[in-house]
């Protein structure tokens, strides 16, 4: 039988908080008590085993997931410490309208129409923006991110690979698809979003953060990435239903990741 005082001393020895005097007292006790020695060896081995399990890195997408939730435009407008449950203003008003079944359809139509008109007005502001081949002219010409409030989110893909993380979100209103691509990479890579050219046409884009090289064919939009950036891409789609897109990530021109959104 080992008394509690010495069991406590064994534990504090393992935790490295014993004074020299306490360590000496414990050593003398262990010297004279075989049962205590065995017990201490077992306890120390247990602590070593627990400690042998190393901590792991948090997934790279965690930061993006958290920050994308807390810095959405609606929340931002109401201050950093505003509770999601206690938000007010236009966001709440819209949410209230959507919550009432009899008004949902009319509200959806009105919001979609208003956003569509806004986007159309911005894009048609300069005739050159309607020429999809000269895509560099589209940068910064799209409606602001705030105009996305009220759009339906139809896909939310988290990307978490070794060294590459972030998300791709698809929003839709009427015939407009908006792809929000926010990725971060610790090495030079390319990402590409491909689609059926018969159903989807790139109509414009906007970039935030560090821009990379951007290119587009009729069926794929690609951008280089080394660090962190975010593109918001505007598409027109003619199918009337969300058309699937394929996100690919390339490293040294080889596909290292592929995912279809929205999932069928």
């Amino acid at each position: 039988m080992i008394d509690q005082k010495h069991i406590d001393l064994m534990n504090t020895e393992i935790d490295g908080v014993n004074t020299d005097e306490q360590s000496r007292e414990l050593a003398a006790f262990l010297e004279s008590n075989e049962e205590a020695r065995e017990y201490f060896d077992g306890l120390r081995a247990t602590a070593r085993t627990i400690n042998s399990i190393r901590n792991v890195d948090a997934p790279a997408s965690l930061y993006h997931r958290v920050m994308s939730r807390i810095t959405r435009p609606a929340e931002h407008a109401h201050g950093a410490h505003a509770s999601y449950e206690s938000r007010g203003g236009v966001g709440d008003w819209l949410r209230g309208l959507f919550a009432r079944p009899q008004l949902r359809l009319a509200t959806s139509f009105a919001v979609g129409l208003a956003i569509g008109v806004t986007i159309y007005a911005v894009i048609t502001d300069d005739g050159s923006f309607r020429q999809p081949l000269d895509l560099s002219e589209f940068a910064g010409t799209m409606a602001t991110l705030d105009s996305r409030n009220g759009l339906d989110q139809i896909a939310d893909l988290d990307v978490s690979l070794a060294g590459v993380s972030g998300y791709v979100r698809l929003h839709q209103t009427g015939e407009t698809l908006i792809a929000d691509v926010a990725l971060e990479s610790d090495r030079p890579i390319q990402w590409g979003l491909s689609y059926d050219a018969a159903e989807v046409t790139l109509d414009g884009f906007r970039h935030l953060g560090r821009p990379g090289d951007f290119s587009s064919t009729t069926s794929e939009t690609r951008a280089t990435l080394n660090g962190e950036n975010r593109y918001v891409l505007l598409f027109k789609e003619s199918a009337g239903v969300p058309s699937p897109m394929t996100l690919r990530i390339y490293s040294d021109d080889k596909v290292v990741y592929e995912s279809v959104i929205p999932e069928s």
């Binding site: 901590n55 792991v56 890195d57 948090a58 997934p59 965690l62 930061y63 958290v66 920050m67 807390i70 810095t71 929340e75 931002h76 201050g79 950093a80 410490h81």
Partner: peptide, 23 residues
Amino acid sequence: ECLAGNSEAFGVLVKKYQQPIYN
């Protein structure tokens, strides 16, 4: 800074604590 309205400042705390909280 967060309480003053700069929600980006929260990113500093997320970066600092994401590893211990996740583990």
